[in-house]
Design a binder for these strands. Sequence first.
DNA 1: CCTTCTGGTTAGAGCGCTCTAACGTATCAT
DNA 2: ATGATACGTTAGAGCGCTCTAACCAGAAGG
Lengths: 328, 328
Amino acid sequence: MGRPTIEDVAARAGVSRALVSLVMRGSPKVSDQRRAAVLKAAEELGYSPHAMARSLASRTSHVLGVMVSDLHNPFWAEVVDGLDAYARAAGFELVFNTGGRRPSRERQALTGLLSFRPAGIVLLGPVVPSGAIAAASAHTPVVLVSRSSRSPTVDTVNDDGQAGSGMAVDHLVSLGHREIVHIDGGGGSQAAPRRTGYVNAMRRHGLTPRVVRGEYTEAAGASAIRALLESPPTAVMAANDLNAVGALSALAAAGLSVPADMSVVGYDNTWLAALRHVSLTTIDQPRNEMGRLAAQALIQRVRGERTSPARHLLRPRLTVRTTTAAPR
Amino acid sequence: MGRPTIEDVAARAGVSRALVSLVMRGSPKVSDQRRAAVLKAAEELGYSPHAMARSLASRTSHVLGVMVSDLHNPFWAEVVDGLDAYARAAGFELVFNTGGRRPSRERQALTGLLSFRPAGIVLLGPVVPSGAIAAASAHTPVVLVSRSSRSPTVDTVNDDGQAGSGMAVDHLVSLGHREIVHIDGGGGSQAAPRRTGYVNAMRRHGLTPRVVRGEYTEAAGASAIRALLESPPTAVMAANDLNAVGALSALAAAGLSVPADMSVVGYDNTWLAALRHVSLTTIDQPRNEMGRLAAQALIQRVRGERTSPARHLLRPRLTVRTTTAAPR
DNA sequence: CCTTCTGGTTAGAGCGCTCTAACGTATCAT
DNA sequence: ATGATACGTTAGAGCGCTCTAACCAGAAGG
């Protein structure tokens, strides 16, 4: 153990510490001869620079911290793809963390990330209190995905959840449904706008909204359906795809067929919804694009190219598959 | 911006830097009065210790680096749960990274993690060349999950892939199948033992093995099925659940019904397989347990409690659902 | 011949923290 | 009084690196 340091490399190559530092950072002001010697010594010793010491000394960081609220939800994996591609191209590295959708754990995860003094932080669907986010943003640029903020120091990337829910309701109504229940995302990120959008759309159509408390998980979708079985509606609009898939399972278990007995709409359009055996009608969020925009917003802040808050609101799209049809 | 340092806190509390350090580390040898003053000052300034400076000075780290080969595969999320719980309880923090199942990117991810000088590293299903792993293990304890190693400095946690494949084949044969194709995991981690197990089991039953080259993705499963449609077998054993789900989709698209026209077996038993609309017969790996064992092995090494390599080989279990039945 | 550059190189300070060893100051036995 | 014993506290060095400013050829200009 005991990794080689810059000093070891310098000694072996017969040059100064500073010269090794220049070579490692790819400076042009080093003679080819010395550069070769340094690289050779580094190779032989298996040396790679100590990122912490480096950022400590340089007072800068090329690390972006990312907190993923739920590793189990494929939605985030797809957002991360966009994030990763953009950040990598801009010369930043990503470091992840997870809070498991629990405020206390997310708070820990957040301080964990901050303790690395990253150049900036991305929070993917956080449920942590906004006070903690504001505190973090006082010291480091912060971008929120799937969560809104009023703070001028925080950037946000969201889809228009109200509009998305509206699309789902409009679709169901156009098929002839009048009893449409919303299984909501509880305290989850973006659950509120989706709920509001649902309620507004129902009222607009002169229908009575009916919301069942849920969560962004499969289990919550299933138990919501079980609770509804006494007086089943003709359609449900789930909080997200994961939730909808849980609902589908519970419906199948109860012997109800979809869409004949009940129509189901999801939200997110993850690969899960696209599976032929699920084939879920859902609201598409441009996941890759969201990741990309988040990385972009953060890096702009980091570089000081922008100080006003970015508020990306993306337009969702209805994706019709086979879980929706006219009611019997 | 510009976060407060220990010096700022010390000045504000009217004590020395060292005392603040002691308070932050929860040392008992600090008077209650000073402790209160320091905590108050820290609170007011929004101070939290600089993890990098800390580990630089203390020459220790409480960070474990984790490289996840594929964020899209729910299997890893479930392994991470076990990992996270154990590591957290032992006072370690996890930092993630991903290599997207591509050797070059994984290599970058690995050096990225190493540059933080973590106490140890966990590689979840890596496809990076073993030379790179050996090099890393010269400086830092390394644990491999779903990949084997002969290096005495590397610990491993695996399920018995050969046995698992054997169970799948035995199950299909017992149902009366004789033409069983294996869609393999290509160069993916643990693809080789699963393939070997399949081939051996087929031979044992006096049957002819037939392997289609694949990958641990949905897309690969689908395209393998399309390639098989000319002369379809009565059953396929997929590389993993993701792969099997792709196969199911392609079969449905081709108008073949499962299990009537073809039986399908997956591998992993992720929540995906358990979905009622998928209901995949599969080989269960104890995912949580694997994460737990990986964390345990790593932490034992870190603490110097063990220097001999740990080689956990877990017993998989057949989980029968509805995608397998007797052939027509 | 001396000055002025210029490109390559290096010494030394310092980033935010921990750790060692030493330093009071109060407490207790002698 | 005198030392011994503890407890709480702190100065100072140093972790691995970067950065500034200075340095030292050798080439070019007067």
